[in-house]
Design a protein around this nucleic acid. Structure first.
Lengths: 160, 160
DNA sequence: TATTGTTATACTCTATAACTATA
DNA sequence: TATAGTTATAGAGTATAACAATA
């Protein structure tokens, strides 16, 4: 069992007595780690915006999907967000309680529900969408046009 | 209530009968969305690697933290991963059951437990760390040296 | 007084399996 | 037979509040 040279063979325990900054090991050197930090920073700002309206970022995503695809059914919504049908039931139950979404009978398939935003749901989205766009402008303003294009190209390459 | 031009005032319902691709609205245009896709792709590969060893990416992160900071206590671990003390109790309980981590008495504070990897835990990490490094090399190989530096610089700027 | 770890409890998110009503 | 939605149930993962031991 040969020891890797990065782990300092016989170093003393951390926290000998008081508050030493923790070592993070190999993580900070990884590209994935920089990706994660940037994504977290952007995500947290996004989160703060939607939290003011009482919803989470993933709830925003679902509402946007319903807003853009009025009448879709629960199964297709589940596929879009990669969630099980039973998960969607609970999710829509909560939105229904909050009067943001309705389940209408589908005109095409009597097994299905056509999902739609209520007027309150649409109003929520018409408040949120401009804020999200403003948020994006503020993110993008940290980079020149050229840098934005460069970043997106590099990210696309990582995503394959 | 003026309508934005992107939402097509009186469009027919989606899914009139069969399977239309869903509209994703404004999300695909956002920088955050490109960030997310790249991060997801990198994360999913990482996840597949550690899943072969029966752990999740966040569990890997915790084990790495203990590996790098042998003897740290539960509260400091909690601060590092931004989790409540009671959450750490449950987390370490699970690691203890799996014989990956031990709670030793702290030599400095009789309220505290000094966390350490067991030999099995260390062995797990010495299998995983080279795989993670190899994973990083394979990610990085999609970009030239110059592009890697550029990407990291831009990501750092987004993270502030 | 404040902090460390623990317990009891609860809420969210997620999934599986079995069911019904349709297709 | 297969699919859409539901229910019952269960397992992570998370948090809050109250507590004992210790600082």
């Amino acid at each position: 069992m040969s020891r890797s040279s990065t782990t300092s063979p016989a170093r003393m325990d951390a926290h000998l007595h008081r508050r030493a900054k923790l070592q993070n090991g190999l993580l900070p050197g990884l590209i994935g780690s920089h990706l994660r930090r940037a994504e977290t920073a952007v995500f947290e700002r996004f989160q703060r915006i939607v939290a003011d309206f009482g919803i989470t970022p993933s709830e925003f995503g679902v509402l946007l999907l319903i807003h853009e695809n009025a009448g879709l059914n629960q199964s297709d919504l589940g596929k879009a967000i990669r969630a099980d049908r039973s998960t969607v039931v609970a999710l829509i139950d909560r939105f229904e309680e909050r009067k943001l979404v309705t389940r209408d009978p589908s005109p095409f398939d009597r097994r299905s529900h056509a999902l739609r935003l209520t007027p309150a749901g649409e109003e929520l989205m018409s408040d949120l969408i401009p804020l999200v766009k403003e948020h994006e402008r503020s993110i993008a303003s940290k980079l020149t046009r050229e840098e934005q294009a460069q970043l997106i190209e590099l990210l696309a390459r990582l995503a394959n």
